[in-house]
Structures are given as C-alpha cells and as structure tokens.
C-alpha cells in the first residue's frame, strides 16, 4: 500500500512537472493556472510565484522609456495603483524584460533609484533581461498587466485601461481593468473583463 502510494505521489509529481512545461509552451491564459516562475528582484532577492499562493498577484510589464509607461508613471497613476492594492494585501511585481542595450533595461541599482525617484511602490521589481518571464506570460507591450488570484489562476490579462493612448489626460474617466478585476474578484464576483488587448510599446526582448 505504502509503496503504491509513493509511486502515485511520484507519478503526480511527474505529471505536475509536465503540466508546468506544457503551460510554459502554451503561455498564460485567463481562466487557467498561472505559470509558476522564480525571478530575481532589484534587491537581489529571489521571488517565487508559488510562495504567494493565498494572495492576489499583479504582474506589470515595464519600460521606463516607453511613452505609454511614462503616461502612467509621470501622472502618478501606476504608483497610486501600486500603493492602493499592496495596502489591500495584493503582491505587485513590476517586471522589466528589456534586454541589455535595449530601451528600458535597468540594472538593479538603476531600478532602485528609479523607483525611489518616482515614488513607485510595487512589492518588488523583477529583472528579466533574458526575457524568460516575459515569454512565459507572452507579455507583449509595456504596460501589459496580469492578475493571478489566491488559487494561482490567471484572472486577468491585457491593457491597464480602456484608453489606448500615451496621453496622461486620458487617465481620468478611463476604466482601469486592473482595479476593476481586483475589485470584482475580491467581492466574489466574476471578472467582467478577463482579457483585453494590451496597448503600448512592444516589449524590448533580446534579439
């Protein structure tokens, strides 16, 4: 019995590994399990998605030279969202997938300085110059937003809001899809917009 149970556990573990690999191949999709990852943040700490089971996790793809990113940072909109939602227990990862030499690439020191200067307040900024995390989630633009629920399911992917422009004057009155999805999910309601077309600059992946 014990041996059989052990082999069952071994089998399940193999299945789980294969599932992770399959998810990596087919990218992240709203309604499905969010692919697990580990990444190094700008303080040198290793961040493991699975460690945040039980919490909402937001992934925000970032390039500080992109006019669409700057729209949301120079207006204070993104920093306010980070502050508002981390205060409510959400884990917020800013992800930088710009390759070295490309726009938006940041060393750890540069990113820490930038976050201080902008009064940015994510839980951490993940440095992904290889683009592995970006490709795992098929992040297309900056910004491109993803929300993972406490059960580890991706509940939102796409644009930050419904005004696909680089103008900060378009922020007031826009429907912020991230706030909307988090508000709905936390209230136990279905997410009304689980997917939208992300807008912005293309992520500056390594060639």
């Amino acid at each position: 019995m014990n041996a059989r149970r052990l082999s069952l556990v071994a089998g399940l573990t193999t299945a789980a590994i294969m599932l992770t690999a399959a998810l990596a191949l087919f990218a992240a999709r709203a309604g499905e399990a969010a692919p697990d990852f580990t990444a190094t943040d700008s303080t040198g700490k290793t961040q493991h998605l699975a460690d945040y089971r039980g919490k909402y996790v937001v992934l925000e793809w970032h390039n500080n030279g992109c006019p669409y990113t700057r729209k949301h940072y120079e207006s204070g909109n993104m920093e306010n969202l980070q502050r508002e939602w981390t205060a409510r227990g959400v884990v917020w990862f800013t992800v930088i997938s710009s390759a070295q030499g490309e726009q938006g690439y940041m060393t750890a020191e540069q990113e820490n300085q930038y976050m201080q200067q902008m009064h940015a307040a994510p839980t951490a900024a993940l440095l992904d110059p290889s683009g592995d995390l970006g490709h795992l989630y098929s992040a297309k633009t900056t910004p491109d937003m993803f929300i993972i629920n406490p059960e580890g399911v991706l509940i939102y992917e796409g644009a930050i809001d419904n005004r696909a422009t680089p103008d900060a004057s378009d922020i007031p009155g826009a429907t912020n899809y991230v706030s909307q999805a988090l508000t709905e999910a936390m209230a136990g309601r279905p997410v009304s917009v689980p997917v939208s077309q992300p807008y912005g600059c293309g992520v500056k992946y390594a060639h």
Binding site: C66, P67, Q103, P166
Partner: peptide, 12 residues
C-alpha cells in the same frame, strides 16, 4: 493629427 512613430522605441 495624433500619431505614434516607432523604430526600436516609440515617440508620440
């Protein structure tokens, strides 16, 4: 007219 011009980077 409003537009976005891009090469490796984008400028509105």
């Amino acid at each position: 007219v409003r537009y976005l011009a891009c090469r490796e980077i984008c400028v509105p």
